[in-house]
Amino acid sequence: MNKFDFNQIGGFPLSTNILDGMQTAYSLFNALGEIAGNFAIISGCNINGSTVSDGVVYINGEVLAFKGGLLGSNVIISEDPENRVFESGESKTVLRKRFATFGSSVTNYPWADFKRVFPTVQIQSFKDNFEARIAALENRPSPIPVGMIAIWNKPATTAIPTGWQECTDLRGRVPVGWDPNDNLDFGIVGKADGAKTHKLLVSEMPSHSHTERGPGNVGGHPGGSAGYDRPNGEQTNNTSTVGGNQAHNNLQPYRVIRFIEFIG
Rank of each mutant, 00 (worst) to 15 (best):
F12E: 05
N17M: 12
L19Q: 02
D20H: 11
N30Q: 05
A31Q: 03
A31F: 03
G37C: 09
G44H: 05
I47A: 10
N48C: 13
V52F: 04
D54R: 10
I59G: 01
N60Q: 13
A65T: 04
N74A: 12
I76M: 08
I76L: 06
D80C: 07
P81E: 01
P81A: 09
N83H: 10
E90A: 15
S91K: 03
K92C: 01
K92A: 01
V94P: 00
K97Q: 09
F99Y: 13
T101I: 01
Y109N: 00
W111I: 00
W111M: 05
D113M: 14
F114W: 06
V117Q: 05
F118T: 01
P119D: 02
T120C: 06
V121D: 02
V121F: 08
V121E: 01
Q122M: 13
Q124S: 11
S125C: 10
D128R: 10
F130P: 00
F130C: 02
A135V: 10
E138Q: 14
E138C: 06
P143N: 13
I144S: 03
G147L: 08
M148K: 09
M148Q: 06
N153H: 13
T158L: 09
T162E: 05
T168G: 07
D169N: 14
D169I: 11
L170N: 02
R171Q: 04
G172F: 07
G172T: 02
V176F: 09
G177F: 14
N183C: 06
K191S: 07
A192D: 00
A192I: 08
K196L: 10
T197Y: 06
L200M: 12
P206C: 04
T211A: 15
V218T: 12
H221M: 13
D229A: 15
P231Y: 08
P231S: 07
G233K: 12
Q235G: 02
N237C: 10
N238D: 05
V242T: 13
V256Y: 00
I260C: 05
E261Y: 08
F262T: 01
